[in-house]
């Protein structure tokens, strides 16, 4: 496995110098994201997210299985984030790197542990049958800020997903194929998003949003804040690095909230557009089994 290229001394020096002069290499302001794009696939539950040159594909799938013995009333919900050599030849299959572990931990904490999805609704027969929902995150291209892009893709894919409809009659469970009954959406409680700050300078006094790959390479610390648009914080992770002023962190959280609100609105808009595209002759409104939460 070839090693990841390190930035040259010139690059390190120059990027820092430029940052002290309020300049980023791509001309962005410090608190600006690169253009975020989202496309849904033809199938339900496929979200393709591009953030500048970073591109992440998330695919949701579901199957009926047996629940865990210690959680008979809960369904199973897993998020798989495996980085393949497509992301960078420095990654190898079945040998997780630090990047990969951190990415999967952050997304796990943000989406799964924050109770974004109602896992109890995935239970079909207590202790015997439940849905297992799985999201596969495929990083196609890595140009920095994987966490935010991947988290957005996961949330988008899950909200777009429809699982096959089921019914219980006389103790017999029937799972309908898509041809028989229109699939139903997951029961979704809130949409958390990640916002990652990167810190530069001796005391981490310079903070950047959405660092590109070359910027990430030379940061002295980073902090990922996950929250939803109501301002409820799911997790804050600052994993080592240079200490940062508490007041600065508070400021970061405030900016993160405005970004999350933007993400939220953007996703809602895209979902609505997609629903319109799929809505053939207005049949969807009648068939929809969604309940207002």
């Amino acid at each position: 496995m070839p090693r990841e290229a390190e930035p040259s001394l010139n690059e390190r020096q120059f990027v820092l110098q430029a940052l002290t002069e309020n300049l980023r290499l791509d001309g962005r302001e410090f608190d600006k994201y690169r253009p975020l794009e989202l496309t849904f696939g033809d199938e339900y539950g496929v979200a393709d997210v591009t953030l500048g040159k970073t591109r992440v594909l998330a695919k949701t799938s579901a199957e009926v299985t047996v629940p865990y013995v210690d959680r008979p009333l809960d369904g199973i919900f897993t998020i798989a984030t495996e980085l393949s050599p497509m992301t960078s030849p420095a990654f190898e299959l079945n040998r997780p790197t630090e990047t990969e572990v951190l990415l999967s931990r952050l997304i796990e904490k943000t989406v799964r542990r924050s109770g974004a999805m109602d896992t109890e609704s995935l239970c079909l027969v207590a202790g015997q049958k439940c849905w297992s929902v799985r999201v596969d995150v495929h990083v196609l291209s890595h140009d920095g800020n994987l966490t935010d892009a991947a988290c957005f893709a996961v949330v988008a894919a899950l909200r777009h997903f429809r699982k096959p409809d089921t019914s219980m009659e006389g103790g017999v469970l029937t799972v309908y194929t898509p041809a028989e009954r229109e699939p139903v959406p997951l029961s979704w409680l809130h949409s958390p998003f990640c916002v990652t700050w990167s810190f530069y300078g001796e005391e981490g006094e310079i903070a950047l949003l959405d660092a590109s790959w070359s910027e990430e390479q030379i940061r002295v610390g980073s902090c990922t804040i996950s929250l939803n648009r109501h301002g409820e914080i799911c997790q804050i992770a600052k994993l080592g690095g240079t200490p940062v002023e508490a007041v600065a962190l508070l400021q970061c959280t405030n900016v993160a909230l405005t970004k999350v609100k933007e993400f939220s609105t953007f996703l809602d808009k895209k979902l609505a557009e997609d629903a319109k595209r799929r809505d053939k002759g207005g049949l969807m409104a009648e068939l929809s089994a969604e309940n207002d939460r």
Binding site: G41, L140, T177
Partner: peptide, 12 residues
Amino acid sequence: QVESAPENDYVN
């Protein structure tokens, strides 16, 4: 990376 494969609508 396979992104999508044709699905059989008649089988889960």
